[in-house]
């Protein structure tokens, strides 16, 4: 139903809230490597509710912002976010239904793949890469997925999510 879908204005409001949370609340939380990535959660929520092209463009812009703020290897973030957002949009349309837990799991898997791509493209050594992917990325994926779950529960009317999980 059209009225049940999140309108663009509502979606923009949620995304703006996530941007503020990312830059104003996140630094006040615990360790920076395990705190939820609010910007990535916003990207995934947007990607799962838009076309693959728009999702890829949004991923590219979010990745470019990440590269500008962490220029360890300029372009790595843009590449990783573009690929993950495109796959999220395409994959959800093909495989997944509107389910709360599936959406949260999608965020977690997407974040882990994002980290894998960023680290691989940045030329990280084997051991640091394994440590990141085995410890920090899963923790951050978990916290981000839990936060995505919270967002989806709070704004379930806007996102039209079924609570049958």
């Amino acid at each position: 139903m059209i009225h049940a879908r999140a309108s663009r204005l509502q979606l923009a409001g949620v995304l703006l809230l996530l941007v503020v949370l990312h830059f104003y609340v996140r630094p006040r939380l615990w360790g920076p490597r395990v705190s939820p990535d609010f910007l990535f959660v916003g990207l995934m929520l947007y990607a799962m509710r838009s076309g693959p092209g728009a999702a890829a463009l949004a991923g590219f812009l979010v990745g470019l912002a990440a590269d500008a703020l962490t220029p360890a290897r300029f372009g790595a973030g843009a590449l990783a976010h573009t690929v993950v957002a495109y796959l999220a949009s395409w994959g959800r349309a093909v495989f997944f239904a509107d389910n709360l837990l599936v959406n949260a799991a999608f965020v977690a898997v997407g974040l882990w793949i994002r980290d894998l791509l960023v680290l691989a493209v940045s030329g990280t050594g084997d051991r640091p890469l394994l440590a990141e992917l085995a410890v920090y990325s899963p923790l951050q994926a978990l916290t981000s997925a839990l936060f995505a779950l919270l967002v989806l529960v709070v704004f379930r009317e806007w996102f039209s999510i079924r609570l049958d999980a």
Binding site: L69, P71, A72, G77, V118, L119, T124, S137
Partner: peptide, 9 residues
């Protein structure tokens, strides 16, 4: 920042 390469830069 939230990115995995935060410690390098």
């Amino acid at each position: 920042q939230a990115q995995a390469t935060d410690g390098r830069t």
